[in-house]
Computed example of a mutant assay.
Amino acid sequence: MTTVPSPCINWCDMNPENGYCRGCYRTLTEIADWSELSNAEKLKVWSQLENRKPQAAQ
């Protein structure tokens, strides 16, 4: 079974205003837990990232 890839782009900078990484748009909890998440949980995170981009791009 293939694992869902991480959205990490190696630009780790947390936005203190909304709690999202400016590189991958995940929260610290999502980043820390990534390796333990199921593929379904990872896909759920991925589905939320596009909506976070306008909020995180500051």
Rank of each mutant, 00 (worst) to 15 (best):
N39M: 07
A40T: 01
E36H: 01
E50S: 14
I9F: 00
Y25K: 11
T2F: 07
T2G: 02
K44I: 00
Y25A: 07
N18F: 12
E41V: 00
D33H: 04
N15C: 13
A57H: 10
I31V: 13
M14N: 09
R26S: 01
G23N: 09
M14G: 06
E36L: 00
D13W: 04
S35D: 13
S38Y: 02
S47F: 02
G23T: 08
P7F: 01
C21W: 11
L49H: 04
V4H: 02
T29N: 09
P16Q: 10
V4L: 00
L49G: 01
P5T: 05
N15A: 06
A32S: 12
W34T: 00
R26W: 13
T29W: 07
R22A: 12
L43H: 03
T2A: 11
S6Q: 07
S38R: 02
I31A: 10
E41W: 05
L28I: 12
S35M: 06
I9G: 04
C12K: 06
C8S: 01
Q58V: 15
T3S: 14
L37D: 04
S6D: 04
P54E: 13
K44H: 10
P54D: 11
T29D: 11
R26G: 10
I31H: 00
Q55G: 13
R22T: 09
T27C: 08
P54S: 08
M14E: 14
P7Q: 05
L37W: 03
W46D: 07
Q55S: 14
C21Q: 11
E50L: 13
P7R: 05
P7N: 04
S6K: 01
G23Y: 12
Q58Y: 15
E17Q: 15
S38P: 06
C12S: 03
Q48S: 09
C21D: 12
C21G: 10
V4Y: 02
T3D: 05
E17N: 14
E36P: 00
L49P: 06
L28G: 08
A56V: 15
N10A: 03
R22I: 10
Q55I: 15
Q48A: 02
S47Q: 06
A40Y: 00
I9D: 10
A32K: 14
C21N: 09
T3H: 00
N39V: 13
K53T: 14
N51H: 11
L28Y: 08
S47G: 08
N15L: 06
K53M: 15
W11K: 09
W46K: 06
A56Q: 12
R26A: 11
N51E: 15
G19K: 10
G23V: 13
K53W: 12
S6W: 04
R52P: 13
G19F: 13
C21P: 07
A56H: 06
Q48C: 03
P54K: 12
T29Y: 04
P7E: 04
R52Y: 14
L37Y: 11
